[in-house]
Amino acid sequence: MNHSFKAGDKGKIVDLSHVSQLVQRRLLDLGITEGSEVCVKCVMPFGGPIMIESCGQCIGIRRKEAIQMEVVKI
């Protein structure tokens, strides 16, 4: 994802390999992996975490990890 997140941004994850192992594993548990569609729901201020939605569930992740997800716009 690029550095400026906006609520409502949508995309499809194409590469997660730059995200840390632990985070990758947890995302996988939640069913989020390459090929999943994600949508930014809201963004916390001061560089705080972001809330994304994927397959009907909401999860919170840190911005620095979200940046490392490679996502293409759809």
Binding site: S20, V23, R26, L30, C58, G60, I61, E65
Partner: peptide, 11 residues
């Protein structure tokens, strides 16, 4: 060194 924060937000 490592920190992990992934949290499910239930409805």
């Amino acid at each position: 060194e490592t920190s992990l924060f992934v949290i499910e937000l239930p409805p």
